[in-house]
Design a protein around this nucleic acid. Structure first.
Lengths: 159, 159
DNA sequence: CCGCATTAGTTGCATTTGCAACTATAATCC
DNA sequence: GGATTATAGTTGCAAATGCAACTAATGCGG
C-alpha cells in the first residue's frame, strides 16, 4: 500500500476556534456599541469599572490580572477614566510605585446604569437555552477556559 | 415600601460575554503564533486559505461572507497572499469587477501543512471533554452563534 | 548601606483594524 | 441607449493594540 498522506480536510465553519472567535466578536461588538454610544466608554474602560466596583482599591496590576488585560491596556483605560472623572488614582503610602484605584461617585453611577444593560443583553443571549442548558453551557465554557490557559501555543506541546 | 432600585451587581468573571472574549482571545493567540512563526500567515490570511482550499474560485465578497470578515480585511489578506504566491487573483470574464480567487500549488501546500496543526490544537482543547460533552458543547455553541446574529446591539431590542 | 536586580506603571513606535471615500464596472429605468 | 443607481474591490486615514524601552521606587546580597 502507498504511504497514505491522506490529506485531512478542515472546514472553517466547523472549526471551534473560528466559531468562538466569531461569537465573541459578535457579542463584544454588540455590547461595545452600547457602552460607547451611551457612556463614551471603551470595552477596556468598562472592564476596569466593573472590577473596581466590586473591589475598590486595587492596583493597576491587580486590575490587569482580574480583567485578563495587559498592563498597558489598563494604564490607558485608567488614564481615560481619570480624565473623565470616573476613577480616582492615588499612590499607596507604603509603596509609592503602586497605585490605588477607586471609582468616584460618577464612576459608580455609570456602573449602576450599565449593569442592567449588560445583564439584559446576557439574558437575551442565554434565552436561547433552557435553564439546564444554561448551566451546562457555563460549566463547559469554564472548563474550556481553564484548559486554554494550560495549553501553550499551538503545535508545540503534547497534550 | 420605598421604590427598590435594588442595585444589581455584576461580576466580570461570571459575565458570559467576558468569558467568551477571553477564551476566544486565548485560543486565537495560541493559533496565530503558530501560523505566524511557521508560515508568516496572519489569521485573516489563514481564513482565506482555509475557505479557498475547499471552495476555489470564490470572489472576495463571497470569501468575506464565509469568513465573517469584512471586505477590506479580505482585500488586504488576498493582497498579501498574492504577493507571497499563495493565491492567484483573476477577473471574472462575465463581470470584470468580480475577482476569481484560487490557491496556487504553494497555497495548497501551506494549507496541507497547517490543517494538521490546527486540528491537533482543536483536539487538545476539546480533550477537556468527553465525546458526549464535545457534541453537546458544539451544539450549544452553534445555537448561541445564531442567536447572537439575530440579536441587535445591546440595549435596544426586546428579546 | 550601596550597587544590582525586580517590580509598577507610563510612553513611544510600529502594526493592525475599521470606516469612509474613491474607482471601475455593471444593472436599471425611463 | 444615456443618465442614474448599485456593486466589487482598493486605498487612505484615524483609532486601537501590542511590544519594547524607559522612569521611578523597592528589595536584596554582600
Amino acid at each position: 500500500m502507498p504511504a497514505p498522506a491522506n490529506a485531512p480536510a478542515l472546514s472553517l465553519e466547523r472549526f471551534i476556534p473560528y466559531r468562538l472567535s466569531v461569537l465573541a466578536n459578535t457579542v463584544s461588538t454588540a455590547l461595545a456599541g452600547a457602552y460607547a454610544s451611551r457612556f463614551g466608554l471603551t470595552i477596556p474602560q468598562w472592564r476596569v469599572i466593573a472590577v473596581l466596583a466590586r473591589a475598590p482599591g486595587l492596583s493597576a496590576a491587580e486590575v490587569a490580572e482580574r480583567t485578563a488585560m495587559d498592563k498597558v491596556a489598563v494604564s490607558r483605560a485608567v488614564t481615560g477614566l481619570a480624565r473623565s472623572g470616573r476613577v480616582r488614582r492615588a499612590l499607596a503610602t507604603s509603596d509609592k510605585r503602586r497605585s490605588v484605584l477607586t471609582l468616584t461617585a460618577r464612576g459608580r453611577a455609570v456602573y449602576r446604569r450599565i449593569v442592567p444593560l449588560a445583564l439584559a443583553y446576557e439574558r437575551r443571549l442565554l434565552a436561547e437555552f433552557s435553564p439546564a442548558e444554561q448551566s451546562q453551557f457555563e460549566a463547559l465554557l469554564q472548563r474550556l477556559l481553564k484548559r486554554s490557559w494550560r495549553l501553550g501555543p499551538a503545535g508545540d506541546a503534547r497534550v
